[in-house]
Every structure is written in structure tokens, then in C-alpha cells.
């Protein structure tokens, strides 16, 4: 059953279909999202129009954290059950995570200049985000340049498990310690402190960036499958 589910052929066809679907809805969503984020959403009562940076900063940070969590969970499952597909998945999602970590840091720093009055501050949230970036860099390095294969796999799993401890630190840094960064606006339990007219564009932008990540992931995934199949062509 397991084998059937993860059969390369089926996955390839499935990813092909999903890709065409995403490609068809993406332009419409992108235009809609950007209009809402840049034109239709109201400015903040205190910050004015700078608040629009939130629509790219917050989703980027969420995706960066989500990607790392996925990476860790898959590494653990792979370490225990040795499922080959999961290695390929990890190989494909790590660059996406790195991209969004960098974007979250850069847009955050652009946002900080007019609001806080500084580009950078070494508070707990910002520092732990930099640490996350280094973890991504280490993971990508060990995936690409450490040989042989099983050794690189071991390094990647160890780094991702150690890095997983950083995730709750990033999440709760604004509550545990005094930081310059404000506490989370959207909580899993309890009320969100973002007005609904600004929450909607935020969610729309999150959806767009998630679809973008899926697009990149599927393309990378197809490339990896072709790589695997290519080494098998001669033997068929």
C-alpha cells in the first residue's frame, strides 16, 4: 500500500496536474492580492501606510517557520522508517525556507527603520531569526556538498533536529523576554488584534506565497524525479 501511494509515476502525474492548476489561478490571485495589499486595504491608525509591509513580512516569516518544522518532522520520520521520498522532499523545500527567512529579515528591517527608528536591533526575536537562517544555510550545505549520501543525510537530520529547538524560541521570544519586536498579533487561541479589513489581505497574501512555494516545490520535485529515473533508463 505504502509503495503504491509513493510510486514515482503517480506522484509525477499528480504534480503535473497540480502545477497546471496553480499556474491557472496564480495570476488572478496575484493581481487581486496586490490590489488589496497596496490599494484597497486601509492604512494603520498609528503607522499609516508603512503597515502594508506587513502583508509580505508576516507571511514570509510564517512560511519560513512552517518549512523548518516540516523539514524536522520529515527528517525524524525518515530517520526512523527510512522512506526515500522524504529525502527528496527535504531537498526541495530547504531552499524555499531559506528564501523566505531572508525575505522576512530584509522586509522586517525595512519596516523597522521608519517605525522603530533603527534598521537592526539585537533583540531575542531578530537574533533567533538570524540563527534560523544559519540553520537553513547549514542544511543546504550538507545536502549539496557532503558526500557520501548517507553521511549527508545524517548531518541534515541532526542539524534539523537541533534547529527545531529554535522554532519555539522564535515563536515565544516576544513573550518570554523584553524585546523591541511587538508580540504576535494573531494567536492560535484567543483574539487576533488585526482589524478584519487588514486581516483579509494578509490571508490572501499568505495564500499567494503558499501557492508560490508549492509551485517551486513541485518544479524542484519533478527535476529530482527525472534525475532518479534517468539513472534507471539504461537499465529498463
Amino acid at each position: 500500500m505504502m509503495r503504491n501511494l509513493f510510486s514515482l509515476n503517480k506522484i509525477y502525474i499528480f504534480s503535473e496536474k497540480t502545477l497546471t492548476f496553480i499556474k491557472s489561478v496564480f495570476p488572478v490571485l496575484l493581481i487581486l492580492g496586490l490590489t488589496f495589499a497596496l490599494v484597497l486595504s486601509p492604512p494603520d491608525y498609528l503607522q499609516g501606510d508603512v503597515v502594508r509591509i506587513m502583508y509580505v513580512h508576516v507571511p514570509s516569516a510564517w512560511i519560513a517557520l512552517g518549512t523548518f518544522s516540516t523539514l524536522t518532522v520529515l527528517s525524524i520520520i525518515n530517520f526512523i522508517f527510512k522512506i526515500k521520498i522524504l529525502e527528496i522532499v527535504n531537498l526541495c523545500i530547504a531552499p524555499i525556507g531559506l528564501l523566505f527567512t531572508c525575505l522576512a529579515i530584509i522586509t522586517g528591517s525595512i519596516w523597522a527603520e521608519p517605525t522603530w527608528g533603527t534598521w537592526w536591533a539585537w533583540d531575542a526575536r531578530l537574533t533567533s531569526m538570524i540563527v534560523l537562517m544559519f540553520f537553513y544555510v547549514m542544511i543546504i550545505y550538507s545536502q549539496k556538498h557532503i558526500k557520501p549520501k548517507n553521511r549527508s543525510l545524517m548531518f541534515t537530520s541532526i542539524i534539523s533536529i537541533i534547529g527545531a529547538i529554535n522554532i519555539p524560541i522564535i515563536k515565544y521570544s516576544v513573550e518570554w523576554w523584553n524585546t523591541l519586536h511587538q508580540p504576535a498579533s494573531i494567536k492560535i487561541t484567543g483574539e487576533t488584534s488585526i482589524h478584519s479589513s487588514m486581516l483579509m489581505p494578509l490571508m490572501l497574501m499568505l495564500l499567494i506565497l503558499l501557492l508560490y512555494s508549492a509551485l517551486i516545490f513541485l518544479m524542484k520535485y519533478k527535476t529530482e524525479i527525472i534525475k532518479v529515473k534517468r539513472s534507471g533508463v539504461k537499465r529498463l
Binding site: P43, Y45, L46, T115, G117, T118, Q182, S193, I194
Partner: peptide, 17 residues
């Protein structure tokens, strides 16, 4: 010798305020 502003986590349009 330096002053930074720390804003809170509330975001809302001006009319609401």
C-alpha cells in the same frame, strides 16, 4: 543617546480608532 519606538501588536484603520 538613542531613542527607539516600540509599537504594539494592534493594527486597525484610522476611522475605527
Amino acid at each position: 543617546n538613542r531613542v527607539l519606538a516600540k509599537h504594539d501588536e494592534n493594527y486597525k484603520p484610522p476611522s475605527e480608532n
